[in-house]
């Protein structure tokens, strides 16, 4: 699903990512951990085509990002769902409109679109708020709308950048259940997080620790205990 080989990225003289090698298989759940500025968001942004891959190779859902032309970026994004800490939903539009947006851009006919959107809204427990403007929803509800939008098109990969960062423990656990549920359907998930509770919610997931732009696989025995302790 994701193949990174010697991937590096710099902002001017600062190297945000250094020589990253990573392979994420279909249906795999992967956590990216690390302090602020470690490069987690930069890595995710590279994966959904928000930043250009200039050094190294990156393949996501069959797209070679190094060679990907700008006009093909929308096609990549239709196969990748993205969830953010600050939700990135349109506050003055309804729950239905926000979720439907991901299918409208594909030109899906109205009738199947409505069926699918209603189904995912129901799965998120938001059916009574389908036609409520998102600015009237709580933080947890807004994040559920964002997750529904990222999942409504059955993406092969979900990239989530601190999706529970603004939420309390109860809501965090609820959303992690939703992520796990979609993961069981075969969707790959890469989630950046600071939270130990989030890591514990998916014990079978692989955990990668990013530090100063370099990656350490915490599941591999040859990675030092120091890395794990430092993260803890």
């Amino acid at each position: 699903m994701v193949e990174l080989k010697h991937l590096s990225y710099n902002f001017g003289s600062h190297w945000a990512l250094k020589d990253i090698n990573l392979s994420v298989g279909k249906g795999e759940f992967l956590f990216l951990t690390g302090h602020s500025g470690a490069g987690k968001t930069t890595l995710l942004r590279l994966l959904y085509g928000a930043l250009p891959v200039s050094r190294g190779r990156a393949t996501v859902a069959g797209f070679d990002l190094h060679r990907l032309k700008r006009r093909y970026v929308p096609q990549l994004r239709r196969r990748v769902g993205v969830v953010f800490q600050d939700f990135k939903i349109l506050p003055r539009r309804t729950v239905f409109d926000n979720v439907a947006m991901a299918l409208e851009v594909r030109g899906m006919a109205r009738s199947p679109l409505e069926r699918r959107v209603r189904a995912i809204i129901r799965a998120m427990g938001l059916e009574t708020k389908s036609y409520t403007q998102c600015e009237r929803l709580s933080g947890g509800e807004q994040q559920r709308v964002a997750i529904a939008r990222s999942m409504v098109s059955n993406p092969e990969l979900i990239l989530a950048d601190e999706p529970t960062g603004n939420l309390d423990f109860g809501l965090t656990m609820h959303l992690m259940k939703i992520f796990k549920q979609f993961h069981t359907y075969g969707t790959s998930v890469i989630m950046a997080t600071h939270s130990r509770e989030v890591l514990e919610a998916v014990p079978e997931a692989r955990v990668l620790h990013l530090e100063n732009g370099r990656i350490h696989d915490l599941n591999k025995p040859d990675d030092t205990e120091d890395d794990i302790e430092e993260f803890e």
Binding site: Y48, P74, L76, R77, V82, K88, M101, A102, V105, R149
Partner: peptide, 8 residues
């Protein structure tokens, strides 16, 4: 947001 969800 439209660009993020793959709008042309």
């Amino acid at each position: 947001i439209l660009a993020l969800v793959g709008a042309k």
